[in-house]
Design a protein around this nucleic acid. Structure first.
Lengths: 165, 165
DNA sequence: CCCGGTGGGTCTCGGAACTGGACCCAGCAG
DNA sequence: CTGCTGGGTCCAGTTCCGAGACCCACCGGG
């Protein structure tokens, strides 16, 4: 009775969660963005069990978000660096950080803030429409079937209903 | 030996993952953004086990992302609607959707795309700096200690090192 | 008055996943 | 030849997850 897999659902959110949707994976990625590369450092900073870390790193490598590199030989030692696919995931973490700063901080304020080097200011991440660059919120955005949506499913009345407004 | 809790870590990403970091919760929220309100519909659309759904909805209500409302009495029937905190989570899902569309779609293209009502165009979500409104990426952003970071921890050399550039 | 349907759940149980800790191995430094 | 470093694997115990059965209040029909 294995966990149901979302990898084949026609939904990028489900697919993303299938890849990264456990408690540790995003934190491993966060460490990687902080510049952590080595197994031991990941392990110490996160306090994660070594086998669990092995597992997460392997999955991230398999899925192409990180790369395992031998950074020396004799003795051969490996480290883990982000690929472009992995670096591109930064946006998700940044938005998650902003949401958490807004809603989960106590009176003392945000634990960690971002600074944007290009403008030199402290700033929260914001989500905007890729076309008009205006903020994008649930109220002014809706979903449509894309080209990759299975035609067979798109016929179903509940699906049509959901995407039809 | 319960799962280690991230709720008290000085990191909004960890706190967010502690709340929502299982496979189902973001999908329940996705359904809510599609306009789903009722228990049965969540259950049928996701194919989630009923007890698991009960659990996820209860946590979302406890954490203030959703609200349980009696929408009729005799018999009393409940539904679940997003609160402001929950609606604000849309950004995270939108960015996750965009990332998945970019990296996890096959040849046939994205399964679901967003349309931004304000400009009327199909558009992917983009993450920008809240200050200068320019795109924010891992390369041009770095993290700093915020006011809510515990002073005691901030002393530690590994922590100082991490946030110091 | 009883039969079944609807909506929103709870109970049970087997299998999977997470955790902590012990163990492993190659190279090298003392 | 002992022990340390770095990058792991193996194992046992506990907890969590998923499927499906069961529950209960109300309603409408015959």
């Amino acid at each position: 009775m294995r966990r149901t897999s979302f990898a084949d659902w026609p939904c990028s959110i489900a697919r993303t969660m299938d890849l990264l949707g456990d408690w540790w994976t995003p934190l491993v990625l966060r460490e990687a963005f902080y510049g952590i590369k080595r197994f031991d450092v990941f392990q110490q900073e996160l306090g994660i069990a070594r086998n669990t870390l092995t597992d997460r790193l392997r999955r991230l490598v398999d899925e192409g978000l990180m790369e395992k590199r031998a950074y020396q030989s004799e003795p051969v030692r490996y480290d883990y660096v982000l690929t472009e696919k992995g670096r591109d995931f930064f946006g998700v973490l940044a938005v998650m950080n902003s949401w958490g700063n807004r809603w989960l901080s106590g009176d003392e304020g945000a634990p960690v803030v971002f600074e944007h080097d290009r403008c030199g200011h402290e700033a929260e991440a914001e989500v905007v429409c890729g076309h008009c660059k205006e903020p994008m919120s649930a109220a002014d955005t809706h979903a449509r079937l894309g080209p990759g949506y299975p035609a067979r499913l798109a016929e179903r009345p509940d699906i049509r209903n959901r995407f039809n407004r």
